[in-house]
């Protein structure tokens, strides 16, 4: 069983929701990324999502764009990111790691080269923002051969038919984008999110995560009521940005915010397990 499947199985057994933080590798500095990943786990992360910096992140709002620019200023490339995951794995063999990024860095490594290197480093899932299932081509087989779970987004605009296609291709979990927009923007409409998540649940046995625009413990808790996992990105990256030159403060603030979300999420879950 893949690390992701195993983790979600445990969570289900315990009646808990997954908390999935996102950080961009190399932000604010490549030396801090592995430390930060461990700190996220200590603060309650069930899965860690690591962003591969890209020069043209069209799915991201200003917060993650700037994170990419900070990481790229230090020259953090896809091979460096895989090396960071490998170092994380030296001390943490359990926590699933999902890479999130864009297609071009994967193209340049070659599908098979990328898949093998990612699996060797200890990556579990791969989410490529600008790669719909229709364009997967041979990458699909390469990921499968290396036991990597392809993770796909479902958006508020996704039709029923596409939702089915996506659910057929997805492994690990399905990621529902809770708003029309880029990362870190907008306000959430809780009712419509609940409805859409239920729709996805009716099509697949995979867990459903919700992300984009979750920036407080309250929102995390509310999302935890409808989804199996809550993804938090820009809110954490904002803390990194605010303290970019003080690495201790980055770890402290990011951990603090994540811990508050963990607490709120577990408080929601508690009555169900009681």
């Amino acid at each position: 069983m893949s690390r992701l499947a195993e983790r979600f199985r445990q969570l289900k057994r315990d009646g808990r929701r997954a908390l999935i933080p996102y950080i961009t590798a190399g932000d604010p500095h490549p030396d801090l990324t592995v430390t930060l990943m461990h700190a996220l786990v200590d603060a309650g992360a069930d899965v860690v999502e690591v962003g591969v910096p890209f020069s043209d992140p069209i799915g991201d709002g200003p917060v993650i764009q700037l994170a990419c620019e900070r990481a790229l200023a230090h020259g953090t490339g896809i091979r460096d990111v895989l090396a960071m995951v490998a170092r994380f794995r030296e001390k943490d063999a359990e926590t699933p790691v999902v890479l999130m990024g864009y297609m071009n860095p994967v193209e340049i490594m070659g599908y098979q080269g990328f898949a093998r290197a990612a699996a060797d480093a200890g990556v579990d899932g791969v989410l490529i923002v600008d790669l719909p299932p229709e364009e997967m081509g041979e990458l699909s087989g390469c990921l499968a051969d290396s036991d990597l779970d392809p993770i796909f987004l479902v958006a508020p605009t996704t039709t029923e038919q596409r939702m089915r296609t996506i659910c057929d291709h997805a492994r690990g979990f399905v990621y529902y984008v809770s708003l029309k927009g880029v990362t870190g923007s907008g306000t959430l409409d809780m009712d419509s999110v609940g409805e859409r998540v239920n729709r996805i649940h009716s099509m697949t046995g995979l867990p459903v995560g919700v992300g984009f625009g979750i920036d407080s413990a309250e929102k995390a808790a509310a999302m935890g009521r409808v989804a199996d996992a809550v993804v938090v990105g820009s809110a954490l990256v904002k803390q990194i940005e605010a303290h970019a030159h003080d690495h201790q403060a980055v770890v402290r603030e990011v951990s603090g915010l994540l811990r508050s979300m963990r607490k709120a999420l577990d408080a929601e879950a508690a009555p169900q397990t009681a």
């Binding site: 600008d130 719909p132 364009e135 987004l153 958006a155 605009t157 996704t158 039709t159 596409r162 984008v177």
Partner: peptide, 19 residues
């Protein structure tokens, strides 16, 4: 699907696939 040989296609975030 918009392919010219191996080129072209549709590589966008999911939100844009329906539009």
């Amino acid at each position: 699907e918009g392919h010219f040989g191996p080129y072209g296609g549709r590589f966008v975030p999911e939100t844009l696939m329906a539009p």
